[in-house]
Structures are given as C-alpha cells and as structure tokens.
Design a protein around this nucleic acid. Sequence first.
DNA 1: TCTGGATACATCGAAGGTCAAGGTATGGAC
DNA 2: GTCCATACCTTGACCTTCGATGTATCCAGA
Lengths: 112, 112
Amino acid sequence: MPPPRFPLPQGTLDMLILQILSLGPAHGYGIAQRLEQISRSVVQVNEGSLYPALHRLHQKGWLRAEWRQSEAGREAKFYSLTRAGRRQLALEKDSWARLTGAVGLIFEEGSR
Amino acid sequence: MPPPRFPLPQGTLDMLILQILSLGPAHGYGIAQRLEQISRSVVQVNEGSLYPALHRLHQKGWLRAEWRQSEAGREAKFYSLTRAGRRQLALEKDSWARLTGAVGLIFEEGSR
DNA sequence: TCTGGATACATCGAAGGTCAAGGTATGGAC
DNA sequence: GTCCATACCTTGACCTTCGATGTATCCAGA
C-alpha cells in the first residue's frame, strides 16, 4: 500500500517552493517534480496550489520570473529567488523550527 | 523582543487538542492554557479557532463532552477522548511525522 | 461597594490557502 | 496520427484560522 497522500498544511507550500528555488532557478513543473522526488513522494503538489503560490510569491517580490528554454526544449517560466525571497525563506524556516519544536514538546508531555 | 506569534497551519490545532486530551479530560479554556504553557508560549490558541475546533471534533465522534465543575468552581464543559478519537490522534501523529520527515529531507537537500 | 481581571462559553464575517477538475498547447515517440 | 509527457493556467467549492464581539460568573483589591 502506497503511503496515503495528505494535504499540505496551509502555508508550508510557500516555504517548500522557496527552499527548492534556493538551490537554483526552476520552472513550476520542475519544482513539483523535485519536491516529489526529494520527499520520496510524501509531498505531492497539486497544480491548482502550485501556480497560484508561484504568482503569490512573485507578486510579493520574493521571486524573479523569466521565460527560458526548458531542458526538454520547451518554453517555460523559470523562477529564481530574490534577495527578499532569501530573507523570507530564513524567516519561514525559523517559524517552522519553532512550530515543530513546540509540537514536539506537546507530544513529549504525554510520554513522561 | 518576544517571539512573534504565527498562525497555526491548518489542521494542526485538531491534533494538538487531541494530544492534550489524551493526557486526561479538560475544558476548552484549560486546553488553551496547557498548550501555551507546554509550548512555552509558541502555541497561542485563538478562541475563535478553539471552540469551533472542539465542536468539530465532538461532532465527528472523537470527543465526549460533559458539563462539570471546574477547578475554579465554575461550570465548564469537560471534553475527553473517545476510542475513535484515540485512533484519530494516532493517525494524525503519523501524518505529522511523515510531513516533518519530508520537510527535513527537502531542507537537507540544500545543505549537502 | 464597585471595578477590573481571570475564568469560561460562544458566534460571526473576513481572509486566505488547498484541492479537484477542467482547459490549452507543444514536442517527441511509436 | 495518436498518445504521453511536458508546461502553463483558471475556476469554484471547501475548510480553517483569525480578530472582533458578546455574554456571564467569581474574586480580589481599592
């Protein structure tokens, strides 16, 4: 039985996109593929979430967009992190660490 | 500067409530306090999130509700986990572990 | 006595993100 | 010539969280 898909908690997708782009420019389709590969299929991005998220991040000035030729020889919109995007990623990683830390504390409380 | 408050990702509140109740019955107000205490104020539950969540979980059959006297001598609605609630908590913990694991993988990918 | 703060419940509308479903188009392989 | 992978996008339904607001009791301190 393959692991069940589960919805990404609101807000985490932005962080994951920024993280992938911190490794280098990529287009939407590629971002989705990388997320799935690296996470071993735990993270599966819906296109109806992905593209709005990219537009959102772009509009906020965290991404730069540029039409280029893809590896497959197709026109594709390549995104890359801006300086502000890098800052934002750091912030979101920080929040994530505090959240998971807090959840960890709450879970431990039961096992003592 | 105190750590900034941040919104709980959608869905995590249910899991945290179930976890707190797995330690024993509690009323809404008390659940919020415990979450804040245990998490060292990282998790701060909004009442407009808490009460709808409790009703939701109750309606799904994961909680039992009962009016009793609180420690402070006030009428309060005490919630406790049902068997189905315990099952649900296990499921959600599992999803959480897979999610944080996946996010961990994606973060590591950058630091190699 | 009365005022404020803690306890305890609840509801409402706004805001925001995710999802499933659907649509368009090109390139290469068979 | 047809199918699949690539690559973009939009729409509406759904759900949760949030901030604001409302009600009520109890107790401590001025």
